[in-house]
Design a protein around this nucleic acid. Structure first.
Lengths: 340, 340
DNA sequence: AATATTTACGCAATCGTTGTCGGCAACGTT
DNA sequence: AACGTTGCCGACAACGATTGCGTAAATATT
């Protein structure tokens, strides 16, 4: 049982393919009676237009590509959820790519996307990515690109980000107000925009409360488990021990919590702990985990909307915007003051 | 700057498209010198074959569709991770669909997949799905389908599942050996194969140790938060209170833990708790969470391999197999006996 | 020298669909 | 009666790439 095409209908009804095509799309210049017959036949044969043929003709694929560092990461899976929901409603399909935080794989992914002729690209850069020539080239050839979360300033397009500065500021301020003075900041890759923004927020809060900035309290982690452990241990063997750690990713938060527990460091008495996190289980951790929450789902939705607006819009010169979504500080036990 | 086609090369070199095509694929009947010139020109124009044109010609898309209930669920995001890695290596792309546990959306997804002309489908059924005519029809038309995790017996094809029976048996046995006698089982949708298998394992373990099966201790939950709360509360207000709860999904485990904490029920003293879970943070929960772990990533990989084998194989009659992967019981604090 | 073979390439069809053009009837208009 | 208009439909080309077939010229064979 093969899939019916417009030719099969034409043959069955002894009509031309042009007539069948027009009848199916309800063209005014087709006899209503003919239309009826064609539609009936199409129904009987379970005809479905071949999207590949349409793609070839219209030079569009009705698919968007999404490049994320890792699907299996709560932030990104929530974002993809949002992307998929918007794309679905607007008749687009979502093709997924993972960079696994590798620059090389990101480049390969972009090449695949380009040759795949997707209609647009949503991307959150890998932690290793320091230059974006691969994206620049694609963008200069007219491929709509929208960044979410991790962007590059070198490409002029829509960006959807969390308010990382404010989030880090709020989190740090909360720690300060809880009486903490030696606040460590466990950052992600220094090449990422989010890292820089969060450190800015962190420093601004310190400054506001007259706390000196200590370079040794800021550590950059890549994403391997071993390195994270080493770096966290490093932090814990400083001459001046921090009394709070602000981690800026789910993986860092988890690793940090685990190591502190192993070292029998009491949280929050000896060490307050908070994260930039999208873990749904944050409140169930021991102790429950104070977090700056990013609106991951909404970020995915907004990014997808902006992308599809470009894809579908005639305007050659869209006004590119950077959408900054507010974060939310949720205070739980891991930063409770002893007095509480 | 448009994308170069084979015609552009032909025009530039004053050759026919056939010659260019053959030169690019290294046909023996093209002059080596001509080949060189063509390849050089292709390089210069940054030529990439149009996969859509190829798809139309070869009647294949080099894409596989994946239908999961929810991306934002650790089990499925890990499985997709596995799927993507295999597909990537074999030159296929992954198109994602979510059913959101809705039968209707699952049907629509399948229709999309069918009309999208994907080369194969990987699916884990929605919790609402009770019949699979939509899949049967697709399968009967020759679409390769492989189930993972949640399957239907009505379709004869490859299946990749965790050993749910043994996993539930092991978990239940562990609870029994910890001295628990009133073990509740919080199951997912009764229509799912995994639910039935896990209940079988649960019952078998009870039987082995001569513990009577109590129907009131088995509760079925759909996936809405409110319902879960209601059902768990129901369980907690039985004449005979359970002394252990075995939950069979991440979401149930989380809801259960939260509610028990709210009710100030001590874990594991008053109530042992364990899950069928893929939560990476299980060991960081309070108390750390005993779990039967499913090899989600590996399940995705195996399923993708089996699917692509069918897709690429000439054999019309593959020997369909059901791959059953072992689960792993990880014992942590939420089921510790008081004596420990 | 006449024929056979090889080399190297072009033509045209194909995949499924749509858009452009053109044409044949059957009407209405003058 | 001659012309214009409208309704309805088919032939053809095109999207990008592959491929079977044909063929001219160059070379080899007898």
């Amino acid at each position: 049982m093969e899939i019916a095409t417009i030719k099969d209908i034409a043959k069955a009804l002894n009509l031309s393919t042009s007539t069948v095509s027009r009848a199916l799309r309800g063209s005014y210049e087709i006899n209503p009676e003919t239309k009826r017959i064609v539609l009936e036949c199409a129904e009987k044969l379970n005809y479905r237009p071949n999207p590949i043929a349409l793609s070839l003709k219209e030079n569009r694929s009705r698919a968007i590509g999404v490049v994320v560092p890792e699907i299996d990461n709560p932030f990104f899976s929530q974002a993809i959820n949002g992307i998929e929901s918007i794309a679905y409603n607007r008749g687009y399909h979502v093709v997924i790519f993972q960079s696994h935080e590798s620059y090389d794989r990101e480049v390969v992914n972009i090449q695949h996307l380009a040759s795949r002729r997707v209609d647009g690209v949503l991307i959150s850069l890998s932690g290793q990515t320091t230059h974006v020539e691969h994206l620049k080239e694609l963008h200069s050839k007219g491929m709509p690109i929208v960044f979410f979360d991790r962007f590059s300033d070198e490409i002029h397009t829509h960006k959807v980000v969390a308010d990382n500065y404010q989030g880090a500021f709020d989190g740090t301020e909360h720690l300060i107000k809880s009486g903490k003075k030696y606040i460590a900041h466990l950052a992600a890759s220094p090449t990422l925009s989010i890292t820089r923004e969060r450190i800015s927020g962190y420093r601004a809060a310190l400054e506001k409360y007259g706390i000196p900035y200590n370079e040794d309290f800021v550590k950059y982690c890549n994403f391997s488990i071993e390195d994270m452990e080493k770096i966290i241990d490093e932090l814990l063997s400083q001459p001046i021990l921090p009394d709070a750690i602000f981690t800026v990713s789910d993986r860092l938060a988890m690793a940090c919590l685990k190591i502190l527990k192993q070292r029998n460091i009491r949280i929050p008495e000896d060490m307050a702990l908070m994260g930039f996190s999208n873990l749904k289980v944050a409140e169930l951790l021991s102790p429950s985990f104070t977090s700056v929450i990013q609106p991951a789902l909404e970020m995915g939705q907004r990014a997808a909307e902006l992308l599809l607006d470009i894809v579908e819009k005639k305007s050659k010169n869209p006004v590119y915007q950077t959408v900054k979504l507010p974060t939310e500080l949720i205070i739980r036990d891991s930063t409770k003051t002893v007095a509480d």
